[in-house]
Amino acid sequence: MNGHAGDGHAGDKVKAIPTWYVDPSAENAMGDGHAPIWRHLIGLIPERDLSAKTVLDFGCNQGGFLRHLHALRPFRRALGLDIAERSIATANSLKGNLPIQYQTGADVSGWTETFDLAFSHEVVYLIPDIDAHARDIRQALKTDGIYYAVTGCHTDNPLWPKWRSLVAERTNTVVQDRSVSDYAKAFAAAGFTVSARKILYDGFIPYAPDGWTPDFMDALDYYSQTKIVFRLVKH
């Protein structure tokens, strides 16, 4: 699977970073924490047989989501993109013989009408130009392709004012302020058929007073009520 950088796309305006977190050791913990949510998300999507499908993971970090997806619903091939250079190096070191290509960057303009499915998990709130991102992902999808964009980082989240400061303090990224409706409008304007649901994670949530949710009830509410899964269909 090969692609090239294009001109004037959202990805061109995003600079590479070494790792998402200022403290690189937090990168491994992020993947471990997301793993149960990834498995829950995979269980939610109605697409069961992916054996002939091509998949994009936008903002793949260390590649864990695609490894989980292939283990549960094997796909034909996949591309993982991320701007964190060390994370991509780790992803490539862990992929073994899986049919996955991991690449540093955020520009999908070289993959026109390539993917049957696309995913992003807690990435869209960091994208400077969400309108361009929506257009680029739609262009990268085949007709009837589907983009699942997952985020709980939106201004409808009651924890957002606090989280916004923590993201700025702890990561090498630039935070954007958008509501759930802002995302829906951007995706619809790009030509997607937009629907969404709460992720409604029903597993046990570990107590982890790490600053993000020191009040344990906040953590329970976040994973059951606040985190949103957009299902965006290209017709």
Rank of each mutant, 00 (worst) to 15 (best):
M1F: 14
G3V: 05
A5H: 12
G8E: 09
G11R: 11
G11E: 02
D12F: 03
A16R: 12
D23V: 12
P24E: 13
A26M: 15
A26Q: 14
N28W: 13
G31P: 05
G33E: 10
P36I: 05
I37E: 06
H40A: 07
H40D: 08
L41Q: 04
I42L: 06
I42K: 01
G43F: 07
L44A: 04
I45R: 03
S51N: 04
A52W: 01
T54I: 05
D57V: 01
C60V: 11
Q62G: 10
Q62N: 14
G63T: 05
R67W: 03
R67Q: 10
L72W: 00
R73V: 11
P74A: 12
F75T: 01
R76M: 09
R77F: 03
L79V: 14
G80H: 00
I83R: 14
E85C: 13
E85F: 07
R86T: 09
I88G: 09
N92Q: 07
K95T: 08
P99M: 11
I100K: 07
D107R: 04
S109M: 03
G110Q: 12
W111D: 03
W111V: 06
W111Q: 07
W111A: 05
T112K: 15
E113V: 05
D116W: 08
L117G: 00
S120W: 01
S120F: 05
H121K: 12
H121G: 12
E122R: 06
V124L: 07
L126F: 15
L126I: 11
P128E: 07
D129V: 02
D129S: 04
I130C: 03
A132T: 06
R135I: 13
R138G: 14
R138P: 05
L141S: 04
K142T: 03
G145W: 07
T151F: 02
C153R: 04
T155L: 09
W160P: 08
W160N: 06
P161E: 09
W163S: 11
R164Y: 06
S165T: 14
L166E: 09
V167E: 10
V167M: 14
V167K: 10
A168H: 14
R170I: 06
R170T: 10
T173A: 15
D182H: 02
Y183P: 09
A184F: 03
F187M: 08
A190N: 02
A190R: 03
S195I: 03
A196V: 05
D202P: 01
G203L: 08
G203S: 10
F204L: 10
Y207P: 02
G211Q: 01
P214N: 10
D215G: 09
M217C: 04
M217P: 00
D218F: 02
K227E: 12
R231P: 07
V233G: 01
K234P: 04
K234I: 03
H235R: 08
H235E: 10
